[in-house]
Nucleic acid binder design. Structure first.
Lengths: 148, 148
DNA sequence: TATTGTTATACTCTATAACTATA
DNA sequence: TATAGTTATAGAGTATAACAATA
């Protein structure tokens, strides 16, 4: 397993990462709430702002059951942020897509997530590169790139 | 506000932080589920594993309404992981405290959170210190220490 | 009168299982 | 028969408002 996973410095960094995660989540929920969205709705809308997607694929990306996606898309659709389209290639499939309003909301949402961005401005370019490399290594161990 | 918040490197780091957050959350929920706990239950138990705490204080720490704490403590209490005690100093207050079983479960939970720890072992001591300092700076901007 | 914890209510998210329509 | 999406159901988390006990 590990050599010195429990040294004080490592434990301190682990705790800091936990704090960053908690802080990021709070900010995300808060930003979503400012647009009267739940966190799950905001995440789904953010996903669709990149490209339309089959319901099943959304569930995979969000790592939840397909039945949940139905409800979340229902609520976003009722507010005009998302719409369902048929898939010409397979009549079983429904593609969920962000509407123009949905894209605008998604962009506003992204802009309001300043937590992760603001403090980064305090870091030098070299530090940001170092941080990037370390985070990539953290994500790389035991987990491929986002894949699809 | 900022000078160059939208340069490619910063955006890349922001996205990486988002990935780390998502990954951390998954691992946390998974670790909790292995002990038949929800994420909220695991967080509350982790909090009580440090020290007994008034219901109201728990709500502040978890940043939720006090009425929610009642239900979560109810479920943990029903499983023998937590108990309610009177506060000698104020008879309105109920102190929630982890039982011996609860403390054991909390310890197991902490140990199974290897995601944040394992990859850190790949970093050099200097890198870990640099990461710690950067994370501290990130958390420091616009947010004091945990406080109470 | 204010505070602590609880209860009642309603909504959202979640997983499971059964269902419809396509393939 | 297998797959995509939905529906039905039940449990959990969440916020709001109203309540009892205590301060």
């Amino acid at each position: 397993m590990a050599t010195s996973r429990t040294d004080p410095l490592t434990l301190e960094v682990v705790q800091l990462i936990g704090s960053v995660v908690a802080r990021y989540y709070e900010e995300y929920e808060h930003a979503a709430a400012e647009h009267s969205l739940t966190g799950a709705q905001a995440r789904l809308l953010g996903l669709l702002s990149l490209e339309p997607m089959a319901m099943r694929k959304i569930a995979q990306k969000l790592k939840c059951e397909p039945s949940n996606v139905t409800g979340i898309v229902d609520r976003l659709e009722a507010r005009g942020l998302v719409e369902r389209r048929p898939d010409p290639a397979d009549r079983r499939v429904k593609l969920a897509a962000a509407t123009a309003t949905g894209l605008t909301t998604a962009a506003l949402l992204r802009d309001s997530l300043d937590f992760a961005r603001e403090p980064l401005a305090e870091l030098s370019d070299a530090e940001r590169r170092a941080l990037r490399d370390m985070l990539q290594r953290m994500l790389g161990s035991g987990n491929g790139p986002d894949g699809g």
